[in-house]
Design a protein around this nucleic acid. Structure first.
Lengths: 171, 171
DNA sequence: GCCATCATGTAATTAGTTACATGATTAG
DNA sequence: CTAATCATGTAACTAATTACATGATGGC
């Protein structure tokens, strides 16, 4: 269950509301883990019940700011240091990128790969915006996650371009 | 639901048993999607019910070989060409790799990152073995998925080494 | 006053994991 | 003859998605 530990990690960096957690999963953490608000709010409730986090402030619009407790910090450290990581991943884009050139006629494959390429470039642009925003705000501990995504992006781009080139050779 | 389309994709390349599908998810497809046999067998049943695949041979040890039907091929093409891809991904290693250097004391962070590094190198070795086995067997359509993983691996390695170097600077 | 966005939640369904269970075949 | 691997399945549980639902605040 990485959701819980990703949440603990985000809250360890800085006390945050459920709403802001949701945005962080969508922005700086988008390369690593996806989670929607309907998963985040119930998990916040469970973490409170288990004493891992607590409400440290209530603000406008019924917002609640959560922070780690000592138990939460201990659990997070335990997970990072003691637990064997699982290498499993799920990446729908990768499935598509590898099936399209194998299975489709060249014309269809080109359509699919060009869309994948646009996607990769769009995502890179998004990450660069996020990085710029972070830099303007004086840097933040989330920058490295964005950086990792930005390093992966050219590899994906090159891979897709190679597949497109191989299609061209066949026609 | 990418599981279903990944399975259709694998069966489109070559008729296969449930057991062999499971191994392909563990080997050539390990960078893209994870699925265990307890998910694969029920899904095979559903795909048969829906007319997407059919049993084309029964072999030793009660094994059943499945192949795509025309409906299955159409569904696969539809998914690859017409459906907007979802960029969501879940990668536990990435979560750990980005939290460890931000949140742990340098000594703990070094332990966690060095384990991540060993993992990356071990996975690369596995992928290289798979690629060698495929090459020996005269090539296969699954080689590109392995190739994509092998291209990503050095980026991960460099990222971890940079994090370790940054830790060193602080101490 | 109203629209966009902030902000939080729940219900129903589907996807995925872990554990249990069993039998066939082959190599040594 | 027995241990490893091939091969398939189900049951109970947990995680995640999709859809529904509601209210607060600020800017125009």
């Amino acid at each position: 269950m990485s959701l819980r530990h990703a949440m603990l990690g985000l809250l360890a960096v800085q006390p945050t509301t459920g709403y802001d957690l949701t945005r962080k999963f969508d922005n700086s953490l988008s390369n690593a883990w996806h989670a929607s608000h309907s998963q985040i709010y119930p998990e916040l409730g469970r973490l409170v019940d288990e004493g891992m986090i607590e409400v440290v402030a209530e603000g406008a619009r019924n917002s609640k700011t959560y922070a780690l407790t000592d138990a939460g910090r201990a659990e997070l450290r335990r997970w990072l240091v003691d637990v064997e990581p699982s290498r499993q991943q799920r990446n729908e884009s990768a499935v598509r990128m590898f099936l399209a050139p194998r299975l489709l006629e060249p014309a269809d494959a080109r359509v699919a790969l060009e869309r994948d390429l646009r996607d990769v470039l769009a995502q890179r642009a998004t990450l660069e915006e996020i990085r710029a925003a972070i830099a303007e705000a004086g840097g933040s501990p989330f920058e490295p996650a964005v950086d990792l995504g930005l390093r992966m992006s050219p590899v994906m781009e090159e891979w897709i371009r190679d597949q497109l080139a191989a299609l061209g050779d066949e026609s």
